[in-house]
Amino acid sequence: MPAAVSVRGLVKRYGEVEAVRGVEFDVAQGETFGFLGPNGAGKSTTIGMLCTLVRPSAGSATVAGYDVVRDRDDVRRSIGLVFQDPTLDSYLTAEQNLRFHAELYGVPRSAVARRLDQVLELVGLSDRRHDEVRGFSGGMKRRLEIARGLLHAPVVLFLDEPTVGLDPQTRRSIWAYIKSLQQAERTTIFMTTHYMDEAEYCDRIAIIDQGRIVALDTPEALKASIGEDRVEIRTDDDLAAIAALEERFGLKASTHEGLVSFSVANGAEFVPRLFAGLQVPIRSVAVSRPSLDDVFLSYTGRTIREAESAAPNEWMRRMAQRGMRR
């Protein structure tokens, strides 16, 4: 199967600024692929180039087999787009917004009604289809935009920070919708986020920092690559437990707020051995994996929060951009 997205040496310069500095990756059909990185890392610029909205300074990319520079219209027909900023007409109803899109993307007239029902159902907005969008919550608007992005059955759906600015509960529900549609439609999804926890929803993620991909793998592999799991146990006799861990398993443990904690390569597999081997009674066990925060830290030398505060903040950047656009 050909790749849904294929990128080679892609570069974008804005004057002095090198927003994207030679990224390379392939996204397989049906995959959910994520770009994870702090603000200003070059995520939106990369999406812009893949969607033919930004002209690459160097390198090449194909989407659904079409070249993003030579076959612009073919690329546009093959993709769905959900931008970072909303692009709905809030004075039209949900359905009117979708119908407008169906016409512009040439969905066959005979297929429109059925397709509308499908995508509205998919994002749980069937009962609001005749309401004007301005009455919708932020989460509902996002869902409607996702429905619209899917309406013309694109090969790849691009989502640029689909949950930014939404509360955690809404973010979770948006992700549930994205995952369910991904299963139902087998659409390839290319999304960006700067929320660590959201990258977990992806099949593979590329960690991008200052215009470069610094790591690319499954979330599991990325976390495994940086080391061991953390195990915390509560015992009746902490000192005996520490001694036993040292003696039987060769592990260095320490107590911390009434818990004995230590690191081990594969925590989940170690737990049964722990129960069998440790003579001290254990009352509870918790195994935690390294977080993507730890992954980002190990590849870039700073936490994502530090990276964000080093970059000019989002607001200032937008004001600057407004000024620059004529």
Partner: peptide
């Protein structure tokens, strides 16, 4: 919510949910 129940289109082969139209003028 079961999305699969709603979408009876099978896109395993990445075919469009409607027959691909001839290239429109």
């Amino acid at each position: 919510m079961s999305a699969e129940a709603v979408l009876d289109v099978d896109r395993a082969d990445l075919a469009h949910p409607w027959p691909a139209p001839a290239r429109r003028s």
